[in-house]
Write a protein that binds this DNA or RNA. Structure first.
Lengths: 119, 119
DNA sequence: GCCATAGTGAAGCAATCGCTTGACTATCTG
DNA sequence: CAGATAGTCAAGCGATTGCTTCACTATGGC
């Protein structure tokens, strides 16, 4: 729960960069080498390697070197946990809105009901 | 699609900070003032205001000032679109893995099948 | 063996981040 | 009205980002 916090830091930070998101999009179609990831990116290969390191540190991507090429692939676990974090907060808020809607509908003909929310 | 990119930048960046995520968690329970958001955070009120501005610029949070207090609340739309982005990439990758599994299972007794993947 | 390919490591640099402080402005409350 | 509360604005500062360049080390194909 303490470490989970730092993981979410890294995952959201990793995804906050458009070049890194492009790499993830490419990798969602299948594994790729670093040079393959670099191809559409108009920046030095060294810069791409640094992006790969950020993705790898976040747990979103795993890579292994075979011969002289490093092949990267997606690791869906932490992606799912970041999704889950967002879904939990969002649905919590949306359920709250729904309950408020029900409350307002239920008290429309009974306006003297106290403002305290129902469970 | 061009603007969507920049929005995702801001949303993921906004969520990459633990203090801002804590604010979102608080807000998922219901609206709150800036001071309320500041309470558990051991930093100056000015810093909290800056965090609120980041959240607001991302579209995750909306706020309005009444009297001297600014009340913040969650705006679930962009949260959902960030979730969707992740889910799309993750499921694309997972479906790919599934097809690979099917392929390997289907050709277990027919190892001469070419390596090209099936559609 | 030679040369192109694929990556690594380190230094450096401008821009951005997260935060502080201090001065200031409203808005309530007694 | 006096003082506390809630927030705003701006300057500044150290740390981190996202790059670059240069030098270097494998590895692979002819």
């Amino acid at each position: 729960m303490l470490n989970q916090m730092a993981t979410l830091d890294r995952v959201f930070h990793a995804l906050s960069d458009p070049s890194r998101r492009l790499m993830v999009e490419r990798l969602s179609l299948g594994p790729a080498s670093v040079s393959e990831l670099a191809r559409p990116l108009s920046m030095s290969l060294a810069a791409v390697v640094q992006h790969v390191q950020v993705l790898e540190a976040s747990g979103l991507v795993r890579s292994q070197k075979v011969g002289r090429t490093r092949t990267c692939s997606i690791q869906p676990a932490v992606m799912r946990s970041a999704e889950q974090w967002m879904a939990d907060r969002r649905t919590s808020w949306e359920r709250k809105l729904d309950r408020l809607g029900d409350y307002l509908a239920g008290t429309a003909d009974n306006p003297d009901t106290p403002a305290k929310e129902r469970q």
